[in-house]
Computed example of a mutant assay.
Amino acid sequence: MYEDQAREEYDRWKRKLLKRPSIAGRYTKSLQAKMNHLIPEKVHTIVTTSIKNMVHATLIGSEYTAAKQPEEGLTLREREQMIEELTKKYRKTAALEGAGTGAGGLLLGAADFPLLLSIKMKFLFDAASAYGYDVKDYRERLFVLLLFQLAFAREEKRPDLLKRLENWEEERLSLPRRKDYLDAVDWKEFQLDYRDFIDLVKMLQLIPGFGAVVGAAANYHFLDLLSETAKNGYRSRWFHGGDEEG
Rank of each mutant, 00 (worst) to 15 (best):
T58W: 01
A151Y: 01
E72I: 14
K120W: 08
I83P: 08
Q149C: 01
L192V: 03
G241F: 13
L142G: 00
D126N: 14
A128K: 07
K19W: 04
R141L: 04
F152M: 09
R154M: 15
L182V: 04
S118Q: 11
L96T: 04
L38K: 07
A110M: 12
K231W: 06
F143M: 02
G25H: 09
D196F: 04
E156C: 05
E228S: 09
L18R: 07
L192I: 05
A94D: 03
E3S: 15
Q81W: 05
I83Y: 06
F125S: 07
S22Y: 12
E41R: 02
L161A: 13
E140Q: 14
E169G: 07
F125D: 02
N36Q: 09
R195Q: 06
A99D: 01
P159T: 08
R12G: 00
D186C: 03
F222H: 06
V201M: 08
L31Q: 12
E156A: 10
E155H: 13
E41M: 03
E78T: 09
S50N: 04
M82H: 10
V135K: 03
E140T: 09
P176F: 11
M1L: 07
I51T: 10
D243A: 14
L165Q: 12
L225R: 14
P40Q: 10
L147T: 08
A95K: 10
D193I: 04
S50E: 03
R20F: 09
R141D: 00
A216S: 15
K52H: 11
L31R: 05
K120A: 09
T93D: 03
P40Y: 11
L117V: 01
G98S: 07
F125P: 04
L147P: 10
D186P: 04
D112F: 03
Y27M: 15
P40W: 04
D180T: 06
F123D: 01
D186N: 10
R91I: 00
G73T: 10
P114D: 10
L18S: 06
Y234T: 01
E245K: 11
V185L: 06
E228Y: 11
A99G: 12
L59H: 03
V55I: 14
A66H: 13
R178C: 03
V47Q: 11
K122W: 02
K231S: 14
F152Y: 15
E41Q: 14
E97S: 13
A110V: 02
L17T: 13
H37T: 00
L165C: 12
Y234H: 01
Q69G: 06
T101M: 02
R158W: 13
F197N: 11
L192P: 00
D193Y: 06
L200P: 02
T101Q: 00
P208K: 06
E245A: 10
